[in-house]
Structure formats: C-alpha cells, structure tokens
Design a protein around this nucleic acid. Structure first.
Length: 150
DNA sequence: GCCAACGTTGGC
DNA sequence: GCCAACGTTGGC
C-alpha cells in the first residue's frame, strides 16, 4: 500500500469538484516522470489532494485509488489541449487512474505549515522548483497531514 | 507579475 | 547526442 500526493490547480479542479463528482478520472498528465508515478499506483492506495497556484496553497483532503490503467481519452481528441498526435490507438502512451473521494479536511494544511514538518524536510515535494504533479509520499508524511487536517 | 527550476524542442 | 532556446509550472 502506497501513499501519493496529487496536485491540482485549485482554480481548475478543486477538492469541492472532487467531492461533488465522488470519482474522477485523472486525465491530462503529459509528463513522463508523473506518468511513471501514476503507473506505480494500485487500487486502495491513498491520496493527499493538494491545491497549487491558488490563494491558500496546501492539502485539502483525501482520496483513494479505485482503478488504474484506463486509456486517457483526451490523447486522441484533436480538440483537446491534451491531444497527443504521436500516440497510437493500438499502443496508447497515456493512461489514467480513477480516484474516489474520501474526505475534505476541516481546514486545509497550508504549505507554510508543511514546510515546518520534519517528515517533509527531505522530500522532493517541498524542494524548491519541484513541478512534479504526482509524487509518492511516506506513511509518516501521510499521517502528519491527516492529523493536522482533521 | 516576476523569476527560478525544470522539461521539451529543434538545429547542428 | 549535445545544448541553446523556448515554454510551462508554481511559489512568492
């Protein structure tokens, strides 16, 4: 069982959208390192949902991996910003996991607080310039965040 | 809005 | 295969 941090721009897809949808297909990831992380996911893995590029940056809630290995439909959609002309139907390049909403935190665990946690000290997630949208987290990191969010 | 960090592209 | 130029992300 693994733990993951998934980033979303708060203004694009927020925890409230996730709560409303109950499940969501995590489509549109077009970065190879993030793709590799997505492929490491297994059903029942737990997710920390993070808002970036917004007023209050931080963790807002929890989710769970429902299903993996779904072909990302947008790679074949010419109209989509996620269209990938190099991807072939018989060998798709991009797969998406499906996530299930678990809970929204009572209050978000903000970045300034995260940066003070010893469990995040060595994390690539908090490193300057980190842009990876899917990052594996440790059990301790997960517990630290949940403890503060509830 | 700025800038640092990093990924991708494209010429050679 | 190298590397400069460019684009994007994300924190501030």
């Amino acid at each position: 069982m693994k733990y993951w941090i998934i980033k979303s721009e708060g203004t694009v897809y927020s925890i409230d959208d996730f709560k409303r949808d109950k499940t969501t297909l995590w489509e549109g990831v077009r970065n190879y390192q993030a793709r590799n992380n997505l492929q490491g996911m297994k059903p029942k893995d737990l997710l920390l949902f993070y808002h970036s590029s917004c007023e209050q940056i931080g963790f807002y809630g929890l989710g769970e991996v429902l299903e993996t290995g779904i072909v990302d439909p947008f790679q074949f959609d010419v109209e989509s910003q996620y269209y990938d002309s190099a991807s072939k139907k018989e060998s798709p390049r991009w797969y998406s996991p499906k996530f299930k909403f678990i809970e929204k935190f009572k209050k978000p665990v903000l970045r300034e607080e995260i940066l003070t946690l010893p469990s995040f000290k060595e994390s690539p997630f908090t490193a300057k310039g980190s842009r990876l949208s899917v990052v594996e987290a440790t059990k301790l990191q997960f517990q630290d965040i949940v403890k503060r969010g509830r």
